[in-house]
Design a protein around this nucleic acid. Structure first.
Lengths: 263, 263
DNA sequence: TATTTTCATCCATTCTAGTGGAATAGCAAA
DNA sequence: TTTGCTATTCCACTAGAATGGATGAAAATA
Protein backbone atom coordinates (compact mmCIF):
# COMPACT_ATOMS: atom_id res chain seq x y z
CA UNK A 1 0.00 0.00 0.00
CA UNK A 2 2.33 2.72 1.25
CA UNK A 3 5.23 3.16 -1.06
CA UNK A 4 8.89 2.76 -0.33
CA UNK A 5 9.49 4.69 2.86
CA UNK A 6 12.89 3.23 3.57
CA UNK A 7 14.70 5.00 0.78
CA UNK A 8 18.45 5.01 1.34
CA UNK A 9 20.94 5.19 4.16
CA UNK A 10 23.62 7.85 4.20
CA UNK A 11 26.38 5.86 2.57
CA UNK A 12 24.21 4.51 -0.21
CA UNK A 13 24.72 6.31 -3.45
CA UNK A 14 21.44 7.43 -4.93
CA UNK A 15 21.92 5.43 -8.13
CA UNK A 16 18.29 5.78 -8.93
CA UNK A 17 18.34 3.41 -11.81
CA UNK A 18 16.13 4.26 -14.68
CA UNK A 19 13.87 1.34 -15.40
CA UNK A 20 13.36 -0.21 -18.78
CA UNK A 21 10.02 -0.26 -20.53
CA UNK A 22 9.75 -4.00 -20.00
CA UNK A 23 10.34 -3.52 -16.29
CA UNK A 24 7.50 -1.06 -16.10
CA UNK A 25 5.25 -3.29 -18.16
CA UNK A 26 5.81 -6.24 -15.86
CA UNK A 27 5.42 -4.08 -12.77
CA UNK A 28 2.04 -2.98 -14.06
CA UNK A 29 0.94 -6.54 -14.72
CA UNK A 30 2.18 -7.63 -11.31
CA UNK A 31 0.41 -4.78 -9.58
CA UNK A 32 -2.85 -5.90 -11.17
CA UNK A 33 -2.34 -9.58 -10.40
CA UNK A 34 -1.52 -8.81 -6.79
CA UNK A 35 -4.44 -6.52 -6.37
CA UNK A 36 -6.64 -9.06 -8.14
CA UNK A 37 -8.99 -6.45 -9.42
CA UNK A 38 -8.98 -3.51 -11.82
CA UNK A 39 -7.05 -0.35 -10.88
CA UNK A 40 -6.70 3.12 -12.37
CA UNK A 41 -3.46 4.16 -14.00
CA UNK A 42 -2.89 6.64 -11.23
CA UNK A 43 -3.32 4.03 -8.57
CA UNK A 44 -1.00 1.64 -10.35
CA UNK A 45 1.64 4.35 -10.53
CA UNK A 46 1.39 4.89 -6.78
CA UNK A 47 1.38 1.18 -6.03
CA UNK A 48 4.66 0.60 -7.82
CA UNK A 49 6.18 3.95 -6.91
CA UNK A 50 6.67 5.07 -10.50
CA UNK A 51 6.21 8.48 -12.09
CA UNK A 52 2.66 8.73 -13.31
CA UNK A 53 3.76 10.14 -16.64
CA UNK A 54 5.67 6.93 -17.32
CA UNK A 55 2.76 4.75 -16.32
CA UNK A 56 0.21 6.62 -18.37
CA UNK A 57 2.47 6.25 -21.39
CA UNK A 58 3.16 2.58 -20.84
CA UNK A 59 -0.46 1.79 -20.12
CA UNK A 60 -1.45 3.39 -23.39
CA UNK A 61 1.01 1.24 -25.25
CA UNK A 62 -0.08 -1.89 -23.44
CA UNK A 63 -3.72 -1.18 -24.28
CA UNK A 64 -2.76 -0.91 -27.92
CA UNK A 65 -1.20 -4.35 -27.75
CA UNK A 66 -4.02 -6.05 -25.84
CA UNK A 67 -1.94 -6.66 -22.74
CA UNK A 68 -4.39 -4.52 -20.81
CA UNK A 69 -8.05 -3.72 -21.25
CA UNK A 70 -10.26 -0.99 -19.88
CA UNK A 71 -12.76 -2.47 -17.47
CA UNK A 72 -14.46 0.91 -16.99
CA UNK A 73 -13.86 4.60 -17.69
CA UNK A 74 -10.60 4.69 -15.77
CA UNK A 75 -10.03 1.21 -14.46
CA UNK A 76 -7.60 -1.14 -16.13
CA UNK A 77 -7.40 -4.89 -16.09
CA UNK A 78 -5.37 -7.64 -17.70
CA UNK A 79 -5.89 -8.02 -21.42
CA UNK A 80 -6.92 -11.04 -23.48
CA UNK A 81 -3.58 -11.33 -25.20
CA UNK A 82 -2.01 -12.62 -22.01
CA UNK A 83 -3.86 -15.88 -22.46
CA UNK A 84 -2.13 -16.52 -25.73
CA UNK A 85 1.20 -17.13 -24.10
CA UNK A 86 0.12 -18.56 -20.77
CA UNK A 87 -2.08 -21.31 -22.12
CA UNK A 88 0.38 -22.26 -24.81
CA UNK A 89 3.20 -22.45 -22.30
CA UNK A 90 1.15 -24.87 -20.29
CA UNK A 91 0.05 -27.23 -23.02
CA UNK A 92 3.58 -27.44 -24.36
CA UNK A 93 5.11 -28.51 -21.07
CA UNK A 94 6.60 -31.81 -22.00
CA UNK A 95 5.03 -33.71 -19.16
CA UNK A 96 1.63 -32.16 -19.51
CA UNK A 97 -0.27 -34.57 -21.70
CA UNK A 98 0.94 -37.55 -19.72
CA UNK A 99 0.16 -35.73 -16.48
CA UNK A 100 -3.41 -35.18 -17.59
CA UNK A 101 -3.84 -38.86 -18.18
CA UNK A 102 -2.40 -39.76 -14.81
CA UNK A 103 -4.57 -37.18 -13.14
CA UNK A 104 -7.62 -38.77 -14.65
CA UNK A 105 -6.38 -42.19 -13.66
CA UNK A 106 -5.74 -41.18 -10.08
CA UNK A 107 -9.14 -39.59 -9.92
CA UNK A 108 -10.84 -42.74 -11.15
CA UNK A 109 -8.97 -44.73 -8.58
CA UNK A 110 -9.53 -42.48 -5.56
CA UNK A 111 -12.43 -40.19 -6.34
CA UNK A 112 -10.59 -37.35 -4.60
CA UNK A 113 -9.49 -33.96 -5.91
CA UNK A 114 -6.30 -34.22 -7.97
CA UNK A 115 -3.95 -31.35 -8.79
CA UNK A 116 -0.87 -30.76 -10.91
CA UNK A 117 1.16 -27.86 -9.55
CA UNK A 118 4.16 -25.94 -10.81
CA UNK A 119 6.30 -23.09 -9.59
CA UNK A 120 6.54 -19.46 -10.66
CA UNK A 121 9.39 -17.87 -8.75
CA UNK A 122 8.33 -17.96 -5.09
CA UNK A 123 4.78 -19.09 -5.63
CA UNK A 124 3.12 -22.39 -6.29
CA UNK A 125 0.66 -22.40 -9.18
CA UNK A 126 -2.17 -24.84 -9.79
CA UNK A 127 -1.66 -25.93 -13.40
CA UNK A 128 -4.47 -28.43 -13.73
CA UNK A 129 -7.07 -30.00 -11.52
CA UNK A 130 -9.94 -32.46 -11.35
CA UNK A 131 -12.44 -32.03 -8.58
CA UNK A 132 -13.30 -34.89 -6.29
CA UNK A 133 -16.52 -36.84 -6.54
CA UNK A 134 -17.63 -36.16 -2.99
CA UNK A 135 -19.00 -33.03 -1.39
CA UNK A 136 -15.59 -32.00 -0.15
CA UNK A 137 -14.53 -28.83 -1.93
CA UNK A 138 -11.28 -26.90 -1.93
CA UNK A 139 -10.98 -23.19 -2.60
CA UNK A 140 -8.09 -23.49 -5.02
CA UNK A 141 -8.59 -23.53 -8.73
CA UNK A 142 -6.53 -23.71 -11.88
CA UNK A 143 -4.40 -20.57 -11.86
CA UNK A 144 -4.47 -20.13 -8.11
CA UNK A 145 -1.11 -18.99 -6.73
CA UNK A 146 -0.03 -19.42 -3.13
CA UNK A 147 3.29 -19.01 -1.33
CA UNK A 148 5.50 -22.09 -1.51
CA UNK A 149 5.49 -22.64 2.23
CA UNK A 150 1.73 -23.20 2.40
CA UNK A 151 1.65 -26.51 0.65
CA UNK A 152 3.27 -29.90 0.40
CA UNK A 153 3.76 -29.34 -3.32
CA UNK A 154 5.41 -25.99 -2.70
CA UNK A 155 8.17 -27.60 -0.68
CA UNK A 156 8.78 -30.35 -3.19
CA UNK A 157 9.13 -27.79 -5.93
CA UNK A 158 12.28 -26.45 -4.29
CA UNK A 159 13.64 -29.78 -3.17
CA UNK A 160 16.13 -30.21 -5.98
CA UNK A 161 17.80 -26.85 -5.37
CA UNK A 162 20.89 -26.43 -3.21
CA UNK A 163 19.65 -25.79 0.31
CA UNK A 164 21.06 -22.28 0.34
CA UNK A 165 19.12 -21.32 -2.76
CA UNK A 166 15.90 -22.78 -1.41
CA UNK A 167 16.45 -20.88 1.81
CA UNK A 168 16.69 -17.62 -0.06
CA UNK A 169 13.48 -18.25 -1.94
CA UNK A 170 11.63 -19.12 1.24
CA UNK A 171 13.14 -16.06 2.88
CA UNK A 172 11.78 -13.80 0.17
CA UNK A 173 8.41 -15.39 -0.34
CA UNK A 174 7.29 -17.37 2.71
CA UNK A 175 4.24 -15.88 4.36
CA UNK A 176 2.01 -16.85 7.27
CA UNK A 177 -0.98 -18.84 6.03
CA UNK A 178 -4.63 -18.16 6.88
CA UNK A 179 -4.61 -20.99 9.41
CA UNK A 180 -1.31 -19.84 10.87
CA UNK A 181 -0.07 -23.40 10.71
CA UNK A 182 2.28 -23.11 7.78
CA UNK A 183 5.96 -23.04 8.71
CA UNK A 184 7.66 -19.75 7.83
CA UNK A 185 11.23 -20.26 8.98
CA UNK A 186 13.51 -20.45 5.91
CA UNK A 187 15.99 -22.81 7.55
CA UNK A 188 13.41 -25.33 8.61
CA UNK A 189 11.57 -25.04 5.33
CA UNK A 190 14.61 -25.64 3.19
CA UNK A 191 15.53 -28.68 5.25
CA UNK A 192 12.00 -30.03 4.93
CA UNK A 193 12.04 -29.35 1.22
CA UNK A 194 15.22 -31.33 0.77
CA UNK A 195 14.03 -34.21 2.93
CA UNK A 196 10.60 -34.46 1.31
CA UNK A 197 12.08 -34.30 -2.15
CA UNK A 198 14.54 -37.04 -1.29
CA UNK A 199 11.70 -39.15 0.07
CA UNK A 200 9.68 -38.50 -3.08
CA UNK A 201 6.65 -37.55 -1.03
CA UNK A 202 5.28 -34.70 1.05
CA UNK A 203 2.22 -34.72 3.26
CA UNK A 204 0.59 -31.72 4.81
CA UNK A 205 -2.37 -31.07 7.10
CA UNK A 206 -4.27 -27.83 7.61
CA UNK A 207 -1.33 -25.68 6.66
CA UNK A 208 -3.30 -23.50 4.32
CA UNK A 209 -6.94 -24.42 4.90
CA UNK A 210 -8.52 -25.98 7.98
CA UNK A 211 -9.18 -29.71 7.78
CA UNK A 212 -7.68 -29.87 4.31
CA UNK A 213 -4.81 -32.25 3.76
CA UNK A 214 -2.61 -32.94 0.78
CA UNK A 215 -0.41 -35.78 -0.43
CA UNK A 216 2.08 -34.72 -3.07
CA UNK A 217 4.81 -36.40 -5.09
CA UNK A 218 7.45 -34.71 -7.26
CA UNK A 219 7.67 -35.01 -11.03
CA UNK A 220 11.38 -34.92 -11.82
CA UNK A 221 13.06 -34.66 -15.21
CA UNK A 222 16.31 -36.28 -16.38
CA UNK A 223 18.29 -33.60 -14.55
CA UNK A 224 16.43 -34.42 -11.35
CA UNK A 225 14.80 -31.01 -11.38
CA UNK A 226 11.35 -30.90 -9.85
CA UNK A 227 9.28 -29.70 -12.79
CA UNK A 228 5.93 -30.08 -11.13
CA UNK A 229 4.01 -32.13 -8.58
CA UNK A 230 0.98 -34.33 -8.63
CA UNK A 231 -1.17 -34.40 -5.53
CA UNK A 232 -4.35 -35.58 -3.89
CA UNK A 233 -6.22 -32.93 -1.94
CA UNK A 234 -8.66 -34.32 0.62
CA UNK A 235 -10.14 -33.92 4.07
CA UNK A 236 -7.88 -34.66 7.01
CA UNK A 237 -10.26 -37.37 8.06
CA UNK A 238 -10.00 -39.19 4.76
CA UNK A 239 -6.26 -38.92 4.96
CA UNK A 240 -6.14 -40.63 8.33
CA UNK A 241 -8.26 -43.48 7.05
CA UNK A 242 -6.57 -44.15 3.74
CA UNK A 243 -3.09 -42.73 3.95
CA UNK A 244 -1.06 -45.80 3.03
CA UNK A 245 -3.11 -46.66 0.02
CA UNK A 246 -3.21 -43.11 -1.30
CA UNK A 247 0.47 -42.37 -0.89
CA UNK A 248 1.27 -45.42 -2.95
CA UNK A 249 -1.14 -44.30 -5.65
CA UNK A 250 0.34 -40.82 -5.86
CA UNK A 251 3.85 -42.23 -6.02
CA UNK A 252 2.84 -44.52 -8.86
CA UNK A 253 1.33 -41.69 -10.85
CA UNK A 254 4.38 -39.49 -10.43
CA UNK A 255 6.58 -42.36 -11.51
CA UNK A 256 4.47 -42.94 -14.60
CA UNK A 257 4.74 -39.30 -15.63
CA UNK A 258 8.47 -39.27 -15.01
CA UNK A 259 8.89 -42.38 -17.13
CA UNK A 260 7.19 -40.61 -20.02
CA UNK A 261 9.69 -37.74 -20.05
CA UNK A 262 12.81 -39.73 -19.30
CA UNK A 263 12.39 -42.27 -22.09
CA UNK B 1 -1.46 7.19 -37.73
CA UNK B 2 -0.36 7.86 -41.30
CA UNK B 3 2.87 9.70 -40.72
CA UNK B 4 5.41 8.20 -43.09
CA UNK B 5 3.61 8.64 -46.34
CA UNK B 6 4.50 12.12 -47.47
CA UNK B 7 8.17 12.13 -46.53
CA UNK B 8 9.74 10.55 -49.57
CA UNK B 9 8.37 10.28 -53.03
CA UNK B 10 10.72 9.12 -55.73
CA UNK B 11 13.24 6.62 -54.47
CA UNK B 12 11.43 4.62 -51.86
CA UNK B 13 13.87 4.16 -49.07
CA UNK B 14 12.86 1.45 -46.62
CA UNK B 15 12.02 3.62 -43.59
CA UNK B 16 12.49 0.98 -40.99
CA UNK B 17 10.85 2.62 -38.02
CA UNK B 18 12.44 2.13 -34.70
CA UNK B 19 10.35 -0.20 -32.59
CA UNK B 20 9.71 0.03 -28.91
CA UNK B 21 11.08 -2.58 -26.52
CA UNK B 22 7.59 -3.86 -25.84
CA UNK B 23 7.04 -4.31 -29.56
CA UNK B 24 10.15 -6.43 -29.82
CA UNK B 25 9.23 -8.41 -26.75
CA UNK B 26 5.82 -9.28 -28.12
CA UNK B 27 7.22 -10.06 -31.53
CA UNK B 28 9.56 -12.55 -29.91
CA UNK B 29 6.75 -14.19 -27.97
CA UNK B 30 4.58 -14.31 -31.06
CA UNK B 31 7.36 -15.82 -33.13
CA UNK B 32 7.67 -18.62 -30.59
CA UNK B 33 3.93 -19.20 -30.29
CA UNK B 34 3.55 -19.37 -34.05
CA UNK B 35 6.46 -21.69 -34.48
CA UNK B 36 5.20 -23.77 -31.55
CA UNK B 37 8.66 -24.95 -30.69
CA UNK B 38 11.89 -23.52 -29.34
CA UNK B 39 13.97 -21.31 -31.61
CA UNK B 40 17.43 -19.78 -31.41
CA UNK B 41 17.82 -16.03 -30.95
CA UNK B 42 19.27 -15.77 -34.41
CA UNK B 43 16.34 -17.56 -35.96
CA UNK B 44 13.88 -15.41 -34.07
CA UNK B 45 15.62 -12.30 -35.34
CA UNK B 46 15.29 -13.54 -38.90
CA UNK B 47 11.70 -14.62 -38.41
CA UNK B 48 10.60 -11.16 -37.35
CA UNK B 49 13.04 -9.26 -39.53
CA UNK B 50 14.72 -7.46 -36.69
CA UNK B 51 18.37 -6.57 -36.18
CA UNK B 52 19.98 -9.47 -34.38
CA UNK B 53 21.75 -7.16 -31.96
CA UNK B 54 18.38 -5.95 -30.73
CA UNK B 55 17.01 -9.44 -30.35
CA UNK B 56 20.02 -10.79 -28.48
CA UNK B 57 19.70 -7.89 -26.07
CA UNK B 58 15.97 -8.20 -25.60
CA UNK B 59 16.15 -11.96 -25.22
CA UNK B 60 18.69 -11.54 -22.45
CA UNK B 61 16.39 -9.17 -20.62
CA UNK B 62 13.40 -11.44 -21.09
CA UNK B 63 15.34 -14.39 -19.70
CA UNK B 64 16.15 -12.34 -16.64
CA UNK B 65 12.46 -11.72 -16.10
CA UNK B 66 11.30 -15.29 -16.69
CA UNK B 67 9.39 -14.43 -19.87
CA UNK B 68 11.66 -16.80 -21.75
CA UNK B 69 13.63 -19.85 -20.76
CA UNK B 70 16.50 -21.70 -22.39
CA UNK B 71 15.35 -25.09 -23.58
CA UNK B 72 18.86 -26.05 -24.70
CA UNK B 73 22.23 -24.45 -25.39
CA UNK B 74 20.87 -21.97 -27.87
CA UNK B 75 17.19 -22.65 -28.12
CA UNK B 76 14.68 -20.43 -26.40
CA UNK B 77 11.14 -21.10 -25.33
CA UNK B 78 8.35 -19.36 -23.45
CA UNK B 79 9.03 -18.79 -19.76
CA UNK B 80 7.02 -19.81 -16.70
CA UNK B 81 6.13 -16.27 -15.77
CA UNK B 82 3.73 -16.09 -18.68
CA UNK B 83 1.39 -18.41 -16.85
CA UNK B 84 1.02 -15.96 -14.04
CA UNK B 85 -0.97 -13.53 -16.10
CA UNK B 86 -2.70 -15.87 -18.50
CA UNK B 87 -4.25 -18.14 -15.93
CA UNK B 88 -5.28 -15.25 -13.72
CA UNK B 89 -6.89 -13.49 -16.64
CA UNK B 90 -9.00 -16.53 -17.31
CA UNK B 91 -9.98 -17.25 -13.76
CA UNK B 92 -11.16 -13.67 -13.26
CA UNK B 93 -13.37 -13.51 -16.32
CA UNK B 94 -16.65 -12.63 -14.80
CA UNK B 95 -18.58 -15.40 -16.46
CA UNK B 96 -16.00 -18.05 -15.83
CA UNK B 97 -17.13 -19.70 -12.63
CA UNK B 98 -20.70 -19.90 -13.82
CA UNK B 99 -19.53 -21.17 -17.18
CA UNK B 100 -17.65 -23.99 -15.53
CA UNK B 101 -20.76 -25.07 -13.73
CA UNK B 102 -22.83 -25.00 -16.89
CA UNK B 103 -20.15 -26.91 -18.72
CA UNK B 104 -20.32 -29.63 -16.12
CA UNK B 105 -24.09 -29.58 -16.26
CA UNK B 106 -24.18 -29.88 -20.01
CA UNK B 107 -21.68 -32.69 -19.89
CA UNK B 108 -23.78 -34.62 -17.38
CA UNK B 109 -26.81 -34.14 -19.57
CA UNK B 110 -25.25 -35.08 -22.91
CA UNK B 111 -22.04 -36.97 -22.23
CA UNK B 112 -20.40 -35.16 -25.13
CA UNK B 113 -17.31 -32.95 -25.25
CA UNK B 114 -18.07 -29.43 -24.00
CA UNK B 115 -15.98 -26.33 -24.68
CA UNK B 116 -15.90 -22.71 -23.63
CA UNK B 117 -14.17 -20.58 -26.24
CA UNK B 118 -13.05 -16.97 -26.37
CA UNK B 119 -11.36 -14.71 -28.85
CA UNK B 120 -7.84 -13.32 -29.05
CA UNK B 121 -7.70 -10.92 -31.98
CA UNK B 122 -8.28 -13.04 -35.06
CA UNK B 123 -8.08 -16.40 -33.39
CA UNK B 124 -10.48 -18.50 -31.38
CA UNK B 125 -9.05 -19.88 -28.14
CA UNK B 126 -10.31 -22.87 -26.16
CA UNK B 127 -10.63 -21.54 -22.62
CA UNK B 128 -11.99 -24.60 -20.89
CA UNK B 129 -13.14 -28.05 -21.85
CA UNK B 130 -14.54 -31.32 -20.56
CA UNK B 131 -14.00 -34.38 -22.67
CA UNK B 132 -16.90 -36.56 -23.70
CA UNK B 133 -17.66 -39.89 -22.12
CA UNK B 134 -17.50 -41.87 -25.34
CA UNK B 135 -14.56 -42.88 -27.46
CA UNK B 136 -14.93 -39.90 -29.72
CA UNK B 137 -11.93 -37.62 -29.29
CA UNK B 138 -11.15 -34.19 -30.66
CA UNK B 139 -7.68 -32.84 -31.25
CA UNK B 140 -8.32 -29.49 -29.60
CA UNK B 141 -7.32 -28.82 -26.05
CA UNK B 142 -7.43 -25.99 -23.58
CA UNK B 143 -5.20 -23.29 -25.04
CA UNK B 144 -5.63 -24.39 -28.65
CA UNK B 145 -5.91 -21.49 -31.04
CA UNK B 146 -7.48 -21.70 -34.47
CA UNK B 147 -8.55 -19.10 -37.04
CA UNK B 148 -12.03 -17.72 -36.44
CA UNK B 149 -13.40 -19.01 -39.71
CA UNK B 150 -12.79 -22.65 -38.85
CA UNK B 151 -15.42 -22.98 -36.18
CA UNK B 152 -18.98 -22.20 -35.28
CA UNK B 153 -17.77 -20.46 -32.14
CA UNK B 154 -15.35 -18.35 -34.11
CA UNK B 155 -18.13 -16.82 -36.14
CA UNK B 156 -20.30 -16.12 -33.11
CA UNK B 157 -17.41 -14.33 -31.45
CA UNK B 158 -17.51 -11.63 -34.11
CA UNK B 159 -21.29 -11.51 -34.44
CA UNK B 160 -21.80 -8.46 -32.28
CA UNK B 161 -19.37 -6.32 -34.27
CA UNK B 162 -20.44 -4.03 -37.11
CA UNK B 163 -20.27 -6.11 -40.27
CA UNK B 164 -17.48 -4.00 -41.70
CA UNK B 165 -15.27 -4.61 -38.68
CA UNK B 166 -15.94 -8.34 -38.73
CA UNK B 167 -15.09 -8.37 -42.42
CA UNK B 168 -11.72 -6.81 -41.75
CA UNK B 169 -10.87 -9.34 -39.08
CA UNK B 170 -11.84 -12.23 -41.32
CA UNK B 171 -9.86 -10.63 -44.13
CA UNK B 172 -6.73 -10.53 -42.00
CA UNK B 173 -7.04 -13.84 -40.27
CA UNK B 174 -9.22 -16.27 -42.20
CA UNK B 175 -7.27 -19.26 -43.48
CA UNK B 176 -8.13 -22.44 -45.33
CA UNK B 177 -8.75 -25.27 -42.88
CA UNK B 178 -7.20 -28.74 -43.03
CA UNK B 179 -10.39 -30.17 -44.47
CA UNK B 180 -10.69 -27.31 -46.95
CA UNK B 181 -14.33 -26.96 -46.00
CA UNK B 182 -14.12 -23.80 -43.93
CA UNK B 183 -15.40 -20.69 -45.67
CA UNK B 184 -12.69 -18.07 -46.27
CA UNK B 185 -14.53 -15.27 -48.01
CA UNK B 186 -14.72 -12.27 -45.66
CA UNK B 187 -18.03 -11.03 -47.01
CA UNK B 188 -19.80 -14.34 -46.61
CA UNK B 189 -18.20 -14.94 -43.23
CA UNK B 190 -19.22 -11.61 -41.77
CA UNK B 191 -22.78 -12.11 -42.97
CA UNK B 192 -22.87 -15.58 -41.46
CA UNK B 193 -21.41 -14.24 -38.24
CA UNK B 194 -24.10 -11.65 -37.98
CA UNK B 195 -26.89 -14.08 -38.80
CA UNK B 196 -25.69 -16.79 -36.42
CA UNK B 197 -25.20 -14.32 -33.62
CA UNK B 198 -28.69 -12.96 -34.14
CA UNK B 199 -30.07 -16.49 -34.10
CA UNK B 200 -28.11 -17.22 -30.92
CA UNK B 201 -26.77 -20.43 -32.40
CA UNK B 202 -24.19 -21.67 -34.87
CA UNK B 203 -23.76 -25.19 -36.19
CA UNK B 204 -20.85 -26.47 -38.18
CA UNK B 205 -19.86 -29.74 -39.80
CA UNK B 206 -16.39 -30.90 -40.80
CA UNK B 207 -15.09 -27.39 -41.29
CA UNK B 208 -11.93 -27.98 -39.32
CA UNK B 209 -11.77 -31.74 -38.74
CA UNK B 210 -13.43 -34.51 -40.71
CA UNK B 211 -16.63 -35.92 -39.23
CA UNK B 212 -16.46 -33.50 -36.34
CA UNK B 213 -19.40 -31.22 -35.75
CA UNK B 214 -20.05 -28.43 -33.32
CA UNK B 215 -23.08 -26.71 -31.83
CA UNK B 216 -22.27 -23.34 -30.31
CA UNK B 217 -24.19 -20.59 -28.56
CA UNK B 218 -22.96 -17.09 -27.71
CA UNK B 219 -22.43 -15.79 -24.18
CA UNK B 220 -23.32 -12.10 -24.34
CA UNK B 221 -22.83 -9.46 -21.71
CA UNK B 222 -25.07 -6.47 -20.87
CA UNK B 223 -23.65 -4.58 -23.84
CA UNK B 224 -24.57 -7.48 -26.10
CA UNK B 225 -20.89 -8.17 -26.75
CA UNK B 226 -20.07 -11.80 -27.39
CA UNK B 227 -17.63 -12.52 -24.57
CA UNK B 228 -17.34 -16.23 -25.22
CA UNK B 229 -19.22 -19.24 -26.50
CA UNK B 230 -20.29 -22.54 -25.05
CA UNK B 231 -20.40 -25.48 -27.40
CA UNK B 232 -20.87 -29.20 -27.80
CA UNK B 233 -18.31 -30.92 -29.99
CA UNK B 234 -19.40 -34.27 -31.33
CA UNK B 235 -19.35 -36.61 -34.30
CA UNK B 236 -21.42 -35.65 -37.31
CA UNK B 237 -23.41 -38.79 -36.90
CA UNK B 238 -24.41 -37.95 -33.34
CA UNK B 239 -25.38 -34.50 -34.50
CA UNK B 240 -27.76 -35.85 -37.09
CA UNK B 241 -29.43 -38.05 -34.53
CA UNK B 242 -29.86 -35.64 -31.67
CA UNK B 243 -29.66 -32.18 -33.13
CA UNK B 244 -32.90 -30.74 -31.81
CA UNK B 245 -32.36 -31.88 -28.30
CA UNK B 246 -28.76 -30.72 -28.12
CA UNK B 247 -29.33 -27.29 -29.60
CA UNK B 248 -31.91 -26.63 -26.94
CA UNK B 249 -29.51 -27.74 -24.22
CA UNK B 250 -26.70 -25.49 -25.46
CA UNK B 251 -29.07 -22.55 -25.70
CA UNK B 252 -30.21 -23.13 -22.14
CA UNK B 253 -26.67 -23.24 -20.82
CA UNK B 254 -25.68 -20.05 -22.59
CA UNK B 255 -28.78 -18.36 -21.22
CA UNK B 256 -27.92 -19.48 -17.69
CA UNK B 257 -24.43 -18.05 -17.94
CA UNK B 258 -25.70 -14.82 -19.38
CA UNK B 259 -28.21 -14.49 -16.56
CA UNK B 260 -25.40 -14.74 -14.05
CA UNK B 261 -23.53 -11.75 -15.48
CA UNK B 262 -26.52 -9.60 -16.30
CA UNK B 263 -28.15 -9.74 -12.87
C1' DT C 1 -18.58 25.37 1.84
C1' DA C 2 -13.33 24.53 1.82
C1' DT C 3 -9.74 21.21 1.29
C1' DT C 4 -7.53 17.15 0.15
C1' DT C 5 -6.96 13.39 -2.90
C1' DT C 6 -7.29 11.42 -7.33
C1' DC C 7 -6.81 11.78 -12.12
C1' DA C 8 -4.67 13.24 -16.50
C1' DT C 9 -1.70 15.77 -19.56
C1' DC C 10 2.26 18.47 -20.78
C1' DC C 11 7.14 19.80 -20.96
C1' DA C 12 12.34 19.87 -20.58
C1' DT C 13 16.07 16.95 -19.38
C1' DT C 14 18.64 12.76 -19.12
C1' DC C 15 20.38 8.72 -20.97
C1' DT C 16 18.75 3.99 -22.31
C1' DA C 17 18.02 0.86 -25.67
C1' DG C 18 16.99 0.00 -30.82
C1' DT C 19 19.61 0.32 -34.81
C1' DG C 20 23.02 -0.63 -38.65
C1' DG C 21 26.96 -2.51 -39.60
C1' DA C 22 31.24 -4.78 -38.89
C1' DA C 23 33.99 -8.55 -36.98
C1' DT C 24 34.48 -13.31 -35.80
C1' DA C 25 33.85 -18.12 -35.78
C1' DG C 26 31.72 -22.68 -36.75
C1' DC C 27 29.74 -25.58 -39.95
C1' DA C 28 28.12 -27.55 -44.31
C1' DA C 29 27.60 -27.56 -48.99
C1' DA C 30 29.70 -26.67 -53.58
C1' DT D 1 39.54 -24.40 -51.30
C1' DT D 2 35.59 -21.07 -51.57
C1' DT D 3 31.13 -19.85 -50.61
C1' DG D 4 27.24 -19.16 -47.81
C1' DC D 5 24.52 -19.63 -43.87
C1' DT D 6 24.19 -19.72 -38.83
C1' DA D 7 25.51 -17.78 -34.53
C1' DT D 8 27.24 -14.23 -31.43
C1' DT D 9 29.40 -10.08 -29.89
C1' DC D 10 30.90 -5.32 -30.21
C1' DC D 11 30.58 -0.43 -31.24
C1' DA D 12 29.00 4.33 -32.49
C1' DC D 13 24.87 6.83 -33.16
C1' DT D 14 20.68 8.84 -31.88
C1' DA D 15 15.44 8.31 -31.70
C1' DG D 16 12.74 8.21 -28.38
C1' DA D 17 11.66 6.35 -23.62
C1' DA D 18 11.80 7.22 -18.56
C1' DT D 19 11.93 10.75 -15.57
C1' DG D 20 10.64 14.80 -12.42
C1' DG D 21 7.95 18.30 -11.93
C1' DA D 22 4.27 21.42 -12.99
C1' DT D 23 -0.44 22.42 -14.00
C1' DG D 24 -5.46 21.85 -13.72
C1' DA D 25 -9.77 19.46 -13.60
C1' DA D 26 -12.63 16.23 -11.29
C1' DA D 27 -13.95 13.65 -7.41
C1' DA D 28 -14.01 12.69 -2.67
C1' DT D 29 -13.82 14.27 1.91
C1' DA D 30 -14.25 17.27 5.66
Amino acid sequence: MDENIASKTLTEIPVRQRQTGLDRTLQILDALTEHEKPMSAYRIARAIGAPSSTIYRTVEEMLKHGLLSRSSKRDLWLGPRLMRYGLLYRIKLDFFSEARKEMEHLWQKTGETIQICGRDEGMMVVLAMIEGKGHFRVTSNVGTRVPLNWTASGKLLLGHLPEQQARELFLSYAQPSPTGRAETDPDLLSKQAKADFAAGLSIQKSDSEYSVACIAAPIRDRDNTCQATISIVLSEKQLDEKETKLTAAVRDSAAAIEASIRY
